[in-house]
């Protein structure tokens, strides 16, 4: 390449950089003004907010620490937690299987038909974009306060999320190899079994494990509404103002989720 950077080009470069600096400054200014307006409208003061943080921690430290008495509730907590974990697992596994099938329909590279692909993605977006709390409240009418409502809720949202992730993974990882396999004359199932499945399995496991983790958290919240599992137990202690037992619930949840994260990290390392 001949060296073409004349004086005028350099000047242009400088003005472009300068303009970028000005535009960043402008964006920050607009954000600050918006924040000020919003806090006036909602009577929120940043100073007061920051000042109350220590008090909040003091309250948590004094109330949420489990006492010896609260440990008598441990069997109840653990059995409820187990129920919640099973609920999350059942919903996630079921959703992952369905999502895998639907993502084959939705992925551009392998979908039998462009209209089916688009329809699949729209259905997935519908399930994904309705918050799980809303799903629960709607489903409570038909299924009542039980495990099934929670499982169906988690299934819907997980199905929506995983379909979207799997579609992206397939389109990203398999476009080229799927093209090559179909050029050899391989059929749809052969392309899936010999190309897509081996290429995507680490990502599929990765996302499914991730959804198990989030679903245990979400199942807790849903449990408050459906009166099942750890969420229900937490709510019970909370309304009884037994904060020490609430603290025990939080700690056991954290332990489970962290240990799950560590295990899934190990699984991921094996599958890569």
């Amino acid at each position: 390449m001949p060296d073409k950077s004349t004086g005028s080009d350099k000047d242009k470069g400088i003005t472009i950089l300068g303009r970028r600096k000005i535009s960043i400054g402008f964006v920050i200014l607009v954000l600050l003004i918006l924040m000020e307006l919003a806090s006036r409208a909602t009577d929120f003061s940043i100073a007061n907010g920051l000042a109350s943080i220590p008090t909040a921690f003091v309250w948590m430290g004094t109330h949420l620490l489990p006492t010896t008495q609260s440990f008598s509730n441990l069997p109840t907590i653990l059995s409820a937690l187990w129920q919640t974990i099973l609920m999350a697992l059942a919903a996630t596994v079921l959703a992952a299987i369905c999502a895998l099938f639907f993502s084959l329909m939705g992925a551009r590279t392998v979908s039998p038909n462009a209209i089916i692909a688009r329809a699949t993605r729209i259905v997935a977006a519908f399930f994904r974009n309705i918050p799980d709390v809303v799903w629960t409240i709607i489903l409570l009418f038909s299924f009542g306060q039980n495990m099934l409502t929670g499982i169906i809720t988690l299934f819907f949202t997980t199905f929506g999320m995983l379909t979207r992730y799997f579609v992206e993974v397939i389109d990203e990882v398999c476009e080229e190899s799927a093209e090559a396999l179909s050029a050899t004359g391989a059929s749809f199932f052969q392309i899936f079994a010999q190309g897509i499945y081996p290429s995507t399995i680490p990502e599929v496991i990765n996302w499914t494990l991730f959804m198990v983790e989030t679903n245990i958290r979400d199942a807790t919240l849903i449990g408050i509404l459906t009166a099942t599992g750890i969420g229900y137990v937490f709510n019970l202690f909370y309304t009884r103002m037994d904060f020490a037992s609430c603290g025990l619930v939080i700690i056991s949840l954290a332990v489970i989720i962290i240990s799950l994260e560590l295990t899934s990290g190990r699984i991921k390392r094996v599958v890569v």
Partner: peptide, 9 residues
Amino acid sequence: FQNYNLVER
């Protein structure tokens, strides 16, 4: 193909 298009795994 230019990018070989193998099933890399």
